[in-house]
Nucleic acid binder design. Sequence first.
DNA 1: GTGGTCTAGACCACG
DNA 2: GTGGTCTAGACCACA
Lengths: 126, 126, 126, 126
Amino acid sequence: MIIKIDTYAEKPIYEQLRDSIILGIASNQLEENEPLPSARNLAADLGINFHTVNKAYDALRAGGYIVMDRRKTAKIAPKRTEGTVLPVLIERLTLNAAEAICCGVDERAFAALCFESYIKIKVGNV
Amino acid sequence: MIIKIDTYAEKPIYEQLRDSIILGIASNQLEENEPLPSARNLAADLGINFHTVNKAYDALRAGGYIVMDRRKTAKIAPKRTEGTVLPVLIERLTLNAAEAICCGVDERAFAALCFESYIKIKVGNV
Amino acid sequence: MIIKIDTYAEKPIYEQLRDSIILGIASNQLEENEPLPSARNLAADLGINFHTVNKAYDALRAGGYIVMDRRKTAKIAPKRTEGTVLPVLIERLTLNAAEAICCGVDERAFAALCFESYIKIKVGNV
Amino acid sequence: MIIKIDTYAEKPIYEQLRDSIILGIASNQLEENEPLPSARNLAADLGINFHTVNKAYDALRAGGYIVMDRRKTAKIAPKRTEGTVLPVLIERLTLNAAEAICCGVDERAFAALCFESYIKIKVGNV
DNA sequence: GTGGTCTAGACCACG
DNA sequence: GTGGTCTAGACCACA
């Protein structure tokens, strides 16, 4: 899986990395139990700081996306099927909806947009 | 309209304020051309600093949510109807979808969730 | 002569008014010795504050564009023919040229642009 | 490159700093990808406040003159070659022409003045 | 009285 | 060590 980091972006690097991996998991580019590269290697590959990769891995572990074994080798966590949505996600969706409303997007267009985003990931078109 | 600020939250205060006002506009609690309180007054009301309110107002102005009349205080901008969605919003929606997928939420549940978020705002239930 | 004021613009109202009158003089829409409306009347016409008009008139008087008689009636000053350029104008031109250079505008395009601006005023096409 | 700040001038300090850097870029005293001093260091050097430098850097970033690499300090943006002129620049040029006309400067003198300003920067004589 | 600017000092996120 | 955020208090331009 190819990860792109934009060091000029407004979004912090560790968030870009974290979000890229979440997208990779959702689109099945990264599979259950698949090992992630070591923080040191990935940092070298991406041209970023070792601590930055660690921070992203920490965030992913806290979110249940990856697991670390004793030797701190990270791998993708088993799939979750509970289907419960975090409150923070609902809050973000609500704000996104509000912005869409302010831009004059009606409910059908918004629903279509959301659905499309979901499907695009599923078919790996991200 | 009542605005709540959580100074202990990790989200910056100016972003909380900005997002509250966006929600207020989307839910019609704040109407077109409605004047906003002066930065100093709002700061006093919310118990935060004048500059922090100014920063939120600046961000809203940059996003086209409010306009600044030099003769008066800021007011809510006229409604936009173009219905064009900013790329940054699509990116955020995509990440939301990815997180939902990782939590085991299927496409119907996700679509329902998005639709619900939109409608809740429209009926003022935020 | 028609003057437009944009109270939402970044530029202060008194500067907009001052600059409009300077443009009017340069394009001969306002002629030598032509009386200007009283500050009070102009303010009412434009929907702005009386003091704001006064401030613009003061600036114009300081710049030698208008003269005030004893009863404070303003009129357009006689034409100047000395052809000397103020240092502040040169400084502004220099900064404009620098911005043009940074945008990739070559010297011919810049010269053409300047010349065009001048001619447009002369033929009253402003 | 030497930057001079006049704290007594009517022009805000952050604008003086911003304009100095634009002039530096246009005159090639500051080259593509050249790193700028950190906001704190430059503030200390110039004897002004850290936030004031930040404001100037923000304005430069908004104008596309510099880019912020999250891994390092700000640096001069790659050169732009599109040659498109911003409307605001045209407006300023028009006002400059009007002032020149009012001072009795004819079109040749004005064109020469503009050309001279441009060339002076190019040869580094600013 | 409004927002804009500047200064100063503090803390935190980021890398 | 960097920039980002927040607070606080001051002065000024604007209307």
